[in-house]
Write a protein that binds this DNA or RNA. Structure first.
Lengths: 339, 339
DNA sequence: TTGTAAGCGTTATCAC
DNA sequence: GTGATAACGCTTACAA
């Protein structure tokens, strides 16, 4: 009883034939409309009999809806490896989309080749909307989304105020100010910062918050400028700081990963934490509790960020206007052992 | 000169009208066929003039090809957060697919709801193939792929030998045996293992390799069985081991994350590493170099696993038969400081 | 070289 | 309630 191998895919047409009704009636039971009990029964039997599986491409073409939303992270290579936040944001977004019966498809863009392909993908009708994470100031992908008026939401910061795409984020400057003040309250005299990603709003804002908290005590020399929010940058940044100011006794690292790297550099230099130098991070990611000592840090509600962004997209998909008020989520300070 | 806001999407038809040719000719320049220089020029001008963007859904319907390949990770929640390998595998797969001009779309499945939706998505014609990571023994997703004969490849281990879907992986048992032997060569007398994920082939194989390496010295009591390859499991597993055998002086952890957790438990218990106890991990992930001391471990070529899997899928897409010989990649031992 | 027309698998708008 | 029939936007024989 072996069936022929390359079985042709059954269509609505086949169901109709098998059940002895018209395609219209089949479509009605598939979607839901008025249909008699007998017809429904016959059709349902036929469906399993012929092994029907709906064709999304055809449905998308007709409906102009794919029930899919893209999740795209505009980040350098290391992101998926070094930034634990992204995973939580993704999971949060997926959960929210899932509840609304939408498929989240996440796209990675690493190269110029990727950028073009993803741009085409987004504009081609395979997705109804997009969630964009950590957008750089200007990116071709953003232009495409904006030009097409693709329902979208940003996580992090709006890439360009002139484009009215809603975003959900946190108050980076305020949070940075708050945790720096807390660090200062511990009696630290010479506190510096490892400032990362100054090509991005979040990076700039965190630096501004730090400067703000220090006020007149701010010293340009005590800011080490590193490219990425990652571990390696933390090591490098801390080394630079130690060289410039051996008497440094407090550090605000732009992220937990950076702080973890800084911890290594301090260990290598024979400084104790929090004894010789107190250090605070940002994110409250898994890094924070992995470190020795565990990090005092700013809690970033990554999962909620993701689900809010998803809501923002779903809202537009339902035809409701995107809210003009952008959303900033709370970022409580979590005080542990590193300062 | 403000254009009307909700501009209707331009189609091939519109281009044809604007350029004064037929749809067929337009399609020919879009894809590549014989077309005169003048016609081509006129059409190209028209394309930018009307702001044409191709409709993937229509193209996919007609061509029966979407130029997209799914990447699906069948793992519990914590995977994207705790397993650094997955990111590298993804990036490797994306790079390979990108070169072949295919869009990788990664799908996360966390709930039963996700499972159903993803299964529908995979079967609906939005993707031409799928890469499946760390498949559990039996999963509805796998059935769907197999039933539809969707071109696919597994990373890790074949979920069921009867289904002829190719896979690429590593020799877990052999690698585990090799690193355990190396650990024993250091003169350790009482060595145990934190065995994770024994519901998965990789978990079972690593345990088998360990048992094999110890030979008659193998002691069931010195195996702590934990559910996941993660940090928290490592902490728990190590505590259990210390309780059962305080004189333990060597540990093989089923993954680097587990080893990192074990390190914490050892630190808490006041044992020095590698002095009091030597520990080795598995994966050579970012965990390995983050730890204090850095881990001796088995290098898992994550990125290569991803690109091999991609090749396997692309091969089938080109109509070439999937290789019958499954691929096992090399796993060199990296010896650092933890043992 | 170019135009014409058919059809991919659905859903939706009609009459019946 | 149900059955024809016309799109959706695209590619591709087949003619011209």
């Amino acid at each position: 009883m072996s069936r022929p191998k390359p079985r042709k895919r059954a269509t609505v047409h086949d169901i109709a034939a098998a059940a002895g009704v018209s395609r219209g009636t089949v479509s009605r039971v598939l979607n839901g409309g008025y249909v008699s009990a007998e017809a429904r029964a016959a059709i349902e039997a036929a469906i399993t009999e012929v092994g029907y599986v709906p064709n999304n491409a055809a449905r998308a073409l007709k409906m102009r809806r794919s029930q899919a939303v893209a999740f795209v992270a505009l980040e350098p290579h290391s992101l998926f490896l070094d930034d634990p936040n992204i995973g939580s944001i993704m999971l949060g977004a997926n959960a929210a989309l899932s509840l609304a019966d939408h498929q989240m498809v996440s796209l990675v863009v690493e190269s110029a080749r990727d950028t073009d392909r993803v741009a085409r993908y987004l504009s081609g009708g395979f997705v109804d909307g997009a969630i964009v994470v950590s957008a750089r100031a200007r990116d071709p992908i953003i232009r495409v989304i904006s030009d097409l008026a693709l329902p979208a939401a940003f996580v992090g910061h709006p890439p360009d105020l002139s484009q009215n795409i809603p975003f959900v984020g946190i108050d980076n400057a305020g949070s940075a100010r708050a945790i720096t003040k807390r660090l200062l309250a511990g009696g630290r005299r010479r506190v510096g910062m490892i400032a990362a990603a100054l090509d991005r709003d979040s990076g700039i804002d965190r630096l501004n918050g730090f400067r703000d908290a220090l006020g007149p005590a701010f010293d340009e020399e005590l800011v080490a400028d590193v490219p990425l929010y990652d571990y390696a940058s933390g090591v490098k940044g801390m080394r630079a700081l130690l060289e410039r100011e051996p008497a440094i006794d407090g550090v605000f690292a732009a992220s937990d990963a950076v702080a973890a790297g800084a911890l290594e550099a301090l260990r290598d230099a024979g400084r104790s934490v929090p004894g010789d130098v107190g250090i605070v991070g940002f994110d409250d990611s898994t890094w924070a509790v992995r470190c020795q000592p565990q990090l005092s840090t700013v809690h970033q509600p990554a999962s909620e960020l993701g689900s809010w962004a998803a809501q923002l997209v779903l809202q537009q998909l339902r035809g409701e206007p995107a809210p003009v008020e952008n959303k900033l989520l709370d970022t409580p300070i979590v005080w542990r052992d590193s300062a």
